[in-house]
Design a protein around this nucleic acid. Structure first.
Lengths: 121, 121
DNA sequence: GATGTACTACGGTGGCTCTCGTACGAACAG
DNA sequence: CTGTTCGTACGAGAGCCACCGTAGTACATC
């Protein structure tokens, strides 16, 4: 009985509140970047539990919060699950091409890394 | 008796060492972002002392070091001055469009901020 | 109601970062 | 050589950040 109108809705920054530095900072963490890449790879919203991250749930929650507060993702409750969707259109409107080039850069770096990997044995 | 061949050259990461997350992190600080914007605004190299930053010299040195170690700028000594140049071409090769969209985003945000400012008075 | 799942909140820890002041080294002008 | 300018190194403090574990809330199902 915490509240009648239990705040099932989460606070998101409006487009005017989204700050570039916060977005860049959010994307500068490998775990968060991988989350964003996964979200960008599908048109669907993904539950937090979908992601297989090398950290505990607590830390996962933390990372999603950072992404949400930076304005990178939109989170909505759906039953017990919390669905995550990229705010691609809004970011595109604010910072045209930014998200795309970051995603492309991440893909490029991954390819580069894979290529340089010990072809070994 | 520090050394005969005093290391007048600074260590820079090669293109293969440049990591996306490090670049994003370097750009996610307002002071460093403003440095990068200034560097991008001119074809010339700029001395550290050119910049009028709201921090002390020690801190300025720190920020330039972060930018250099991330691979964003190239620093060379020129007499007593230390010249800074953006590694634009190399970054473009590694992460096409990234730097440009970040710079455009910074400009867009600045314009947005200026526009929303209290016309006041 | 009881159980299970999905996620959050809180408290805490170690590490990194931004910041500074002071002291020092390197180049240059007298 | 003396002094000045430009930048570095070192030490140090305050704050943030990523991480964890535990306890708790909200929803679904039985």
């Amino acid at each position: 009985m915490t509240d009648t109108a239990t705040t099932r809705t989460l606070a998101h920054p409006g487009p005017a509140e989204i700050r570039l530095e916060a977005v860049l900072h959010a994307l500068s963490d490998p775990i968060r970047l991988s989350i964003v890449r996964d979200l960008a790879a599908t048109p669907d919203e993904l539950a937090c539990s979908y992601f297989d991250l090398p950290v505990t749930k607590s830390t996962t929650t933390h990372h999603f919060r950072v992404l949400r507060e930076a304005g990178v993702v939109r989170q909505t409750y759906r039953g017990t699950a919390k669905m995550n969707g990229l705010r691609g259109a809004e970011l595109e409107g604010l910072f045209p091409g930014l998200l795309d080039s970051v995603l492309a850069a991440a893909a490029a770096e991954e390819a580069r890394r894979a290529g340089r990997k010990v072809p070994a044995k």
